[in-house]
């Protein structure tokens, strides 16, 4: 992945000129599958993003706290353990409870096709699984980061 690629279409250029896209990668459940996390972290960084990784076994509360404290644009949730419906929802509920709407939430991992619409309904987009090209993921993150940034710039 070439550096700075995420500005390719020029549309979001002005949004990220002063501060690059900031992403928090997190597995909010009991899941130690981190191979994909390390791949995504490096790929995002190579694409010019600022990347944080929440480490092993953060709780949904930890994830939301970090996202807010670090003022990230996107929270990238990943679970390979099959608990995404329950656990991703906890993250979304906490965000709603705290009235956070300027952080986009994107999901991925071992997510069967029939769960995708349910996650979308919670406001989690992407939900990409094994074999997804990194370019597809990076483009999606960029798009969702632009949404978040526009909201952050409102005030």
């Amino acid at each position: 992945m070439q550096g700075g690629k995420y500005l390719a279409d020029g549309k979001s250029q002005s949004l990220f000129r002063d501060k690059p896209i900031k992403v928090l990668l997190a597995k909010p459940g009991i899941d130690g599958h981190d191979r994909g996390m390390f791949v995504l972290a490096r790929a995002f960084r190579d694409a010019g993003m600022d990347v944080l990784y929440a480490g092993l076994l953060p709780t949904p509360e930890d994830v939301v706290n970090t996202a807010v404290n670090e003022d990230v644009d996107v929270v990238a949730l990943s679970l390979l353990n099959g608990a995404h419906l329950t656990v991703f929802k906890k993250v979304m509920d906490l965000m709603k409870e705290r009235g956070i709407d300027d952080i986009s939430v994107v999901g991925g991992g071992t997510i069967p096709d029939h769960d995708r619409p349910k996650l979308e309904k919670m406001g989690i987009t992407g939900n990409y699984g094994p074999g997804t090209p990194l370019k597809v993921i990076i483009d999606h993150i960029t798009e969702r980061a632009a949404e978040a940034r526009q909201k952050k710039n409102r005030i």
């Binding site: 009991i30 709780t59 099959g82 608990a83």
Partner: peptide, 18 residues
Amino acid sequence: DMPTLYGYDCDNPRADGE
């Protein structure tokens, strides 16, 4: 399962859904 692998019981709130 994951809770067992990490030494948590099934009634731990963290194990919900797992």
